[in-house]
Amino acid sequence: MVATPLLSVAGSNPAGLNFDWAFFWHALVRPNSSFLLGFATTIYISIIAMALAIVVGLLLALGRRSRLWPVRVFVSLYIWVVRGTPLLVQLVIVYDGFSAMRLFSFSDVTVLGIDIQGVVQAGIVTLALNEAAYMAEIIRAGIASVGVGQSEAGLSLGMTPGQVMRRIVLPQAVRLIVPPLGNDFNAMMKSTSLLATIGVSELFLNAEEINSLTFRTFEIYSVAALYYLFLTTVWTLVQSTIEARLQSQLGIPRPPTFRQRLLGTGWRPAGGRVRDSA
């Protein structure tokens, strides 16, 4: 009586929840080849974009410390604009906008025998340039956190400022850069789903296509979500391995294990000091 409208909605599906378990399971463990290709595309776009972002971000971070003020101003403006506008908007501007304006349009190229679509290039470039702005800030903070005494010790040995940056400061900054970098990489792997809007055939676009053919909406998007979860989980493992290695470089014992990282139990955040026993 009171719940009539609800009942009528539920009544449209007299069999209960509309969830095709068999379809879900099949899509999860035996995905079709184009879905797998989309998954692979998501992975390689993420990795290439992140690698480029680290390089560009490092250049930006160093540019922000440049002796030349135009360089500093350019970098500040770049970071301000890129961090202040949405990635989705940047994507359509770089791929559709530039082309429409006849400024630049991405065309398919073949690199080392591998065809790379123009739209994929646009996606990688935009993701990389976007992430570079964030990386610049992360790297800058990492560099700033290395004490000035470290630089002075390097300089007093007769190293040039460039050698000090490369041999002394950056290797120590890396330890502080990796955790936020890992956080950003995690976010970027998920942000690649935005590339579907410009037509990159990555994981999410393939899920959308399967949805439009089968209307198994909840099932296929759940499968896509699980694939993203798998990716970020693997990355968590990789990241904790990297961090453990950087910790051991300082002689700090017993970094958190993967299980501890994942479940967040059984370890306390490491302080700067070493304890003899734990």
Binding site: G147, G149, Q150, E152, A153, G154, L155, S156, L157, G158, M159, T160, Q163, I168, P171, Q172, R175, Q249, L250
Partner: peptide, 22 residues
């Protein structure tokens, strides 16, 4: 570079050691 070359002839020991922890 010239500054670095001069400094290489001079040893400096800091109050706070400033060893390279890595």
């Amino acid at each position: 570079r010239q500054i670095a070359e001069r400094r290489a002839e001079i040893g400096f020991v800091f109050q706070s050691f400033n060893l390279f922890p890595h």
